[in-house]
């Protein structure tokens, strides 16, 4: 029963949004704006609260089972401290909330992002072998792109930069366009399948 209701709601909102796109009436535009800027944001915010509660539950259960106690505790402390700081001192210019973001979250986030450079490079060292024509093309285009964006480029003529720009602007762009067309067609068909009720995996269990 609940699956049927959810499916009907999905179809109604899908058809409504589709039809509203073709109307230039101010009311139609206002409804589209309300759904995309308010409904989506508000429901997503409530979903985030559900996710945060789930995060607390999972970690508390793990602590009760005596699994990774110091790590789970520090994760919970970090999660709880941010709302506490925001409620206590606000989130403005020199607030402790912003201090934690700038001195704890941002440096660690960018360092994790930077770490990936080493793992991508080491994986490519193992994976990049010119065993076939496609593999050789991949290797050459990657090497040209890497060298053209490094100190090596400044020591040679501008050939590498010209070659990498050409590779990026024409053959690479052609493949990118084809992939984007494919993504567009795939998204279009998936959206239509969702609206007419063929795609039902998002409904989850059987109740």
């Amino acid at each position: 029963m609940s699956r049927r209701v959810a499916q009907i709601v999905c179809a109604v909102f899908g058809v409504l949004m589709f039809l509203l796109f073709f109307s230039g009436h101010p009311t139609a535009k206002a409804i589209t704006l309300a759904i995309t800027t308010q409904y989506w944001q508000v429901i997503a915010a409530f979903a985030l609260i559900v996710g945060a509660v789930s995060f607390v539950r999972v970690n508390v259960k793990a602590i009760q089972r005596r699994q990774d106690i110091p790590f789970r505790a520090i994760g919970l402390l970090g999660m709880i401290s941010m709302p506490v700081l925001a409620i206590g001192w606000g989130i403005g210019g020199s607030s402790p909330f912003l201090w934690v973001f700038e001195n704890i979250q941002a440096p660690m986030q960018s360092t994790v992002f930077a770490l990936l450079a080493f793992f991508v490079a080491s994986a490519s060292l193992r994976g990049f072998r010119a065993r076939s024509i496609p593999a050789a093309i991949l290797l050459v285009s990657a090497v040209v792109m890497l060298l053209s964006r490094s100190w090596f480029e400044s020591t040679t003529s501008s050939f590498l930069l010209t070659a990498s720009d050409w590779l990026r602007n024409y053959p690479s762009m052609a493949a990118r366009r084809a992939i984007l067309i494919g993504i567009g067609l795939g998204s279009l068909t998936t959206s239509l399948r969702l609206i007419v009720g063929i795609e039902r995996t998002w409904l989850g269990g059987s109740r």
């Binding site: 999905c10 909102f13 409904y39 239509l192 609206i195 998002w202």
Partner: peptide
């Protein structure tokens, strides 16, 4: 499932055009 249906349905409807 109902709020999810609103999100998914309206998202799919907006995605087509």
């Amino acid at each position: 499932r109902v709020p999810l249906a609103v999100l998914i349905g309206s998202g799919a409807g907006a995605a087509v055009p």
